[in-house]
Simulated assay, not measured.
Amino acid sequence: MPHPNPHAVDFLLARRSRPAKTLTGPAPDRVALEPILTAALRVPDHGKLEPWRLIVLERAALDRVAEVAARRGEAQGLPEEQTAKGVSQFRESPLCVAVVAVPRPTDKVPEWEQLLSAGCVCLSLVNAALASGWGACWLTGWPAYDAGFLTDALDLAPGERIAGFVHLGTEGAVPPDRPRPDLAATVRWVSA
Rank of each mutant, 00 (worst) to 15 (best):
N5C: 09
P6N: 09
A8L: 15
L13N: 12
L13V: 01
R15A: 14
R16M: 05
R16Y: 10
R16W: 10
S17H: 03
S17A: 15
R18D: 15
P19M: 09
A20L: 08
L23W: 10
L23D: 13
T24K: 11
T24W: 02
D29M: 03
R30C: 02
L33N: 05
P35T: 11
I36C: 04
T38P: 01
T38W: 07
A39R: 15
A39V: 03
R42A: 13
R42W: 04
D45M: 05
H46E: 09
K48H: 13
K48C: 08
K48E: 13
L49R: 09
E50Y: 05
R53G: 14
L54V: 12
L54H: 11
V56I: 11
L57V: 09
L57W: 12
R59G: 09
L62M: 12
V65Y: 04
A69P: 02
A70C: 00
R71M: 00
R72G: 00
R72A: 10
G77D: 03
P79C: 07
E81T: 14
T83K: 11
K85F: 02
G86T: 01
S88R: 15
S88W: 09
F90Y: 12
E92I: 00
E92S: 14
P94G: 03
C96M: 14
C96A: 14
V97G: 01
V100D: 07
A101D: 14
V102Y: 02
P103N: 06
P103Q: 07
P103M: 10
P103S: 06
R104E: 13
K108F: 06
K108Q: 12
P110K: 01
E111L: 01
W112K: 04
E113L: 10
E113Y: 08
C120S: 15
C120V: 06
S124G: 12
A128W: 09
A129G: 13
S132Y: 02
G133C: 09
Y145K: 00
G148C: 00
T151M: 03
T151L: 04
D152V: 04
D155T: 05
D155A: 15
D155S: 14
A157G: 03
P158K: 03
R161G: 02
R161L: 02
I162H: 02
F165M: 04
H167R: 12
L168H: 07
E171G: 08
G172Y: 08
A173V: 13
A185G: 11
A185V: 03
T186F: 01
R188N: 07
W189E: 15
